[in-house]
Design a protein around this nucleic acid. Sequence first.
DNA 1: GCGGAATGTAGAT
DNA 2: TCTACCTTCCGCT
Length: 281
Amino acid sequence: MPEGHTIHRLAADLGERFGGRPVRASSPQGRFAAGAARVDGRTLGGADAHGKHLFLGFPGFPGSGDPAGGDWIHIHLGLYGGFTQGDGPPPAPVGQIRLRLATEEAPRVYADLRGPSTCELITDEGRRAVGERLGPDPLRADADPGRAWARISRSRTTIAALLMDQKVVAGVGNVYRAEVLFRHGIDPYRPGKDLTRAEWDTIWADLVELMREGVRNNRIDTVRPEHTPEAMNRPPRVDDHGGEVYVYRRAGMPCHLCGERVRTAPLAARNLFWCPACQKG
DNA sequence: GCGGAATGTAGAT
DNA sequence: TCTACCTTCCGCT
């Protein structure tokens, strides 16, 4: 599930449902028991996302004397973590629930977190430190694409690997990297230093649009209007990811634009997908 | 029911 | 470059 759009959507949803309200926090599974106990009963100040990192903020108690005063729950979903949200009282826990959030006052809502690679309690300073390790996030208003360009333009590493490096750009995952390179006809194996500034600016602007759309729809759609199944009179994609894409997980199938077979190869520990005919630039 | 892969990353080697 | 993490879902038997 999780590329940056998923995390930003979660931050928005959790902030809307729990923000400004006292929240019961627990760890039915037990692995986050101490952290949950520390924030249990406190008011959620807000939820924030940077790249694939989610932060739930619990301001310090008034008059507690804490200098910064806050605690954050820092969550990273990893490859298969996820939230299950619902209305009403939370059901009896099923399976391994690392963190359960619930309200006791109406409207009652709950959220269960399973399988995250990270779920830890951090301070304001810790929150800042995580942010400083990450590159600009196309979904954040404070993002500076120039910071990413400074690294890309000096690097012999392939653009496909650079896009997946969270220190360079935060929030892009395997689907967005494959799709954005296809959309601009860029050979995924081109070294970063061979890109032009104009190409990078175009890629960045496209990521901003695609990922915002991803937050809105809670899924990844990258196919332009003229290439949708309806527009091209082809069958829609049928798999669990939902969205329409050009090349991601379409290895061996014909390219929607030229009919060439989509290729796949491991790159930066993941399977890269691309069309060798359309992506020669 | 089992094996494998998956929108990810840290840490060891 | 490899392994561990540890959940879900798919396809195959």
